[in-house]
Simulated assay, not measured.
Amino acid sequence: MEGYAFVTKEPLLGPVVLALRVDVPGRKEQLWLGEEQDVEAALRGKERPLFLAQTRPLGAFWCEFGQTAAEGWTEAIWALSDALTAKKRSQREEREQAAAQLLSQQAEGNGTNAAAWYAAIQIWEMYLRCRRGRDSQQAAQALRNYAQLLTLPFGQYTPEMVHWLRDKPVIPVWNDRRDGKLEVWYPQGQTPFECAVVKDSLRPALIYYRQRILDAGLLMRRCSQCGRIFFGPDARSTLCSDRCRKASRKAAKRQFDGRAKGKDYEQAYDREYMFWYNRITKLKKAGAPPEQIGRAQAALKEFRKEALIRKQQVKEKKLPATQFISWMIGQEAVIEGICGE
């Protein structure tokens, strides 16, 4: 996977597309973001440079889109529009740099949010194409119209997501003809599958995604172990993955063993703190790089800060002790990842 740079250059030769596979039986989704010919080749199992390629738990695309803020996009769009109509080169370059920084923040600030990356790249590529136009005012208007089509859905789906999570009737957000273009690909390969592909607005992909989940009868749930939103077969589903189920069983066993004396959550906190402390001590004895030790110590500091807040909530009966213990056990993966275990 290769990154995308928001710099002034020649636009890409091929259109940028986002391909989405919704694997309901496997409870997972797959995303490919890149130039059309590269994405098509990647779907057939070939190695191609892509901006983003991921396999994730089912529901991640929908939830991260609903949580993407609508703020910030307008400033970037107007900065690019002003760059197209600027009379002086210095003014154009200043607005370009400001827009590039804003789009980078929108994309990178959301981590691996495929929707944010897709919108940012498409807006920048549209700007690069508009720079070739002779009529700057017309080019700026075309850019604004196109960018609005891409960013308008951000924020519109959050209310629907909240209603869905609370098991209320889903209020649909539909599309019209101008943002209704969706292609469905069936890549040739050993395992045939269906893949939705968009080149412009993301709204058709969202509707496609939601409809596949509704047709399967899945419900949106929140994991009692890690707090992540996931889709389960019924209202009794409370754990999102095998990892969380394992952690839940482990927490239940520790709680049972600790009931003999004292407050189980206090003992669990002491055990988890020593778990982290011993891992960092082991790193130091092994002669690990200072940067790795520093990251481990910083992670421990954040763990203690959050753990003390949650422990106080348990004391005040605002948080169940079992949920606090499960959370601490789930955090063990953080220090283990830093230590390479």
Score class of each variant (00 low, 15 high):
Met1Glu: 11
Met1Trp: 03
Tyr4Pro: 05
Ala5His: 12
Thr8Ala: 13
Pro11Asp: 07
Pro15Ala: 01
Leu18Val: 02
Gly26Ile: 05
Leu31Thr: 04
Leu33Lys: 04
Glu35His: 02
Gln37Tyr: 04
Ala42Arg: 00
Ala42Phe: 00
Lys46Ala: 10
Leu52Trp: 02
Leu52His: 02
Gln54Phe: 10
Gln54Pro: 01
Arg56Tyr: 05
Arg56Pro: 04
Leu58Cys: 13
Leu58Asp: 12
Gly59Leu: 09
Gly59Val: 12
Phe61Lys: 03
Cys63Gln: 15
Gln67Ala: 14
Ala69Glu: 13
Glu71Asp: 13
Trp73Ala: 09
Ile77Pro: 02
Trp78Met: 12
Trp78Leu: 15
Asp82Asn: 09
Arg89Trp: 14
Arg95Pro: 02
Gln97Asp: 06
Ala98Gly: 08
Leu103Ile: 05
Ser104Phe: 11
Glu108Arg: 02
Gly109Lys: 07
Gly109Glu: 01
Gly111Ser: 10
Asn113Thr: 07
Asn113Pro: 03
Ala114Lys: 02
Trp117Ile: 02
Ala119Thr: 15
Ile123Met: 00
Glu125Trp: 01
Cys130Phe: 00
Arg132Phe: 11
Arg132Pro: 01
Arg134Trp: 15
Ser136Asp: 14
Gln137Gly: 11
Leu143Trp: 01
Asn145Met: 06
Tyr146His: 04
Phe154Thr: 03
Gln156Lys: 15
Gln156Ile: 05
Tyr157Ala: 03
Thr158His: 15
Thr158Lys: 15
Thr158Glu: 11
Pro159Arg: 12
Pro159Asp: 08
Val162Trp: 07
His163Ser: 06
His163Ala: 14
Leu165Ser: 11
Arg166Gln: 08
Lys168Glu: 15
Val170Asp: 06
Val173Phe: 11
Asn175Pro: 00
Asn175Leu: 09
Asp176Gln: 07
Gly180Ala: 10
Gly180Pro: 11
Leu182Cys: 09
Val184Cys: 07
Tyr186His: 09
Pro192Ile: 10
Phe193Ser: 08
Glu194Val: 02
Val198Gly: 10
Asp200Thr: 05
Leu202Lys: 08
Pro204Gly: 08
Pro204Lys: 03
Ala205Trp: 06
Arg210Met: 07
Ile213Val: 10
Leu219Pro: 12
Leu219Thr: 14
Met220Thr: 01
Met220Phe: 00
Arg222Lys: 13
Arg228Pro: 10
Phe230Met: 06
Gly232Cys: 03
Asp234Leu: 00
Asp234Ser: 12
Ala235Glu: 15
Ser237Pro: 05
Ser241Ile: 02
Arg243Gly: 08
Ala247Ile: 14
Lys253Tyr: 04
Arg259Ser: 13
Arg259Ile: 15
Arg259Thr: 15
Ala260Thr: 09
Lys263Trp: 05
Lys263Gln: 13
Gln267Ser: 09
Arg271Ala: 06
Glu272Ile: 15
Met274Leu: 09
Phe275Ile: 03
Asn278Tyr: 11
Ile280Asp: 05
Thr281Glu: 14
Thr281Ser: 12
Lys284Ala: 05
Lys285Tyr: 10
Ile293Trp: 01
Gln297Lys: 09
Ala298Gly: 10
Ala299His: 06
Ala299Glu: 13
Phe303Trp: 12
Ala307Arg: 07
Ala307Glu: 05
Ala307Pro: 03
Leu308Gly: 03
Ile309Tyr: 10
Ile325Phe: 03
Ile325Lys: 03
Ser326Thr: 13
Ser326Ile: 03
Gly330Cys: 15
Ala333Glu: 14
Ile335Gln: 03
Ile338Leu: 06
Ile338Phe: 11
